[in-house]
Design a binder for these strands. Structure first.
Lengths: 133, 133
DNA sequence: TGCTAATATTCAAACATTGACATATATATT
DNA sequence: AATATATATGTCAATGTTTGAATATTAGCA
């Protein structure tokens, strides 16, 4: 099996773990400091069972590491850099696809069409209806 | 609504788009050069309908941009840096959770337990059964 | 023009799968 | 026993993938 397949499989799993808002938040909260399950639960405003489950997710993928201290279990990031890596992802969000993006596309198509210089048949109005929700 | 919630929502959506191996591969393939749907379909060895749908996904999130050229539709990355960002994610994968990670955890727990110096009751063997699949 | 072939997208059905949450129970530590 | 955390279970909905057919879009050509 080609390495590309293997690697994208692994990557997609990583992304999958982070595809839940709560889990993203956990990572971001842990960026600042170690936190116990209870502390997290309070921050996230969810049940402690739910918190444990999400943590279990992150743990099984090596994102976080547990560290029991008496009755409490502290969690921290196995690789703290992941927090910054995640926020770097913000670069690739928005700006609001449906608005700007179709415009960009339209412009590109237009430039291309104008460029090849053939018959032009009312492109603008039709194109606008293609907007996705 | 606190900004943290909003941001992690957005981020989790981004991650969600990339949580499928095919979509990750598409991004990586597009790192090298623009590709048509047919080319992608051949590379990925899936139907063209499937390819279109995955592209539609990526498009609607502003990851890729279409660019029609005659009968073909070329796709490229809206922000080419995303390809590198994704491969950076490899840093946070493995090395094989179940093996190493439980070991690390065990060591940490042990260090802590040894540190606080109380009764030790055969920690290693028990801990090993905690391995996840 | 109008027809056909090539390319790409969409639709809808079928489908599996997942996965999140709550509740309850279990484990560990003091 | 009490606190803190983990897991197990059931349920529920939502989600997402695939396939095949129908529909656009464009090029080339008669």
């Amino acid at each position: 099996m080609p390495y590309r397949v293997v690697v994208s499989n692994e990557l997609s799993k990583l992304f999958n773990v982070l595809s839940h808002p709560i889990r993203v938040r956990i990572v971001e909260e842990l960026k600042a400091r170690e936190l116990t399950v209870t502390e997290l639960k309070d921050i996230l405003e969810i049940s402690s069972a739910a918190t444990s489950q999400q943590l279990s997710h992150l743990r099984s993928h090596g994102i976080v590491v547990e560290n029991r201290q008496g009755r409490n279990v502290f969690y921290h990031l196995r690789k703290p850099e992941i927090a910054d890596w995640i926020t770097d992802g913000l670069k690739f969000i928005g700006p609001d696809q449906s608005e700007v993006e179709t415009m960009v596309t339209a412009i590109e198509s237009a430039r291309n069409a104008w460029g090849t210089a053939s018959k032009q048949k009312e492109p603008p109005a039709k194109k606008a209806s293609k907007r996705r929700t």
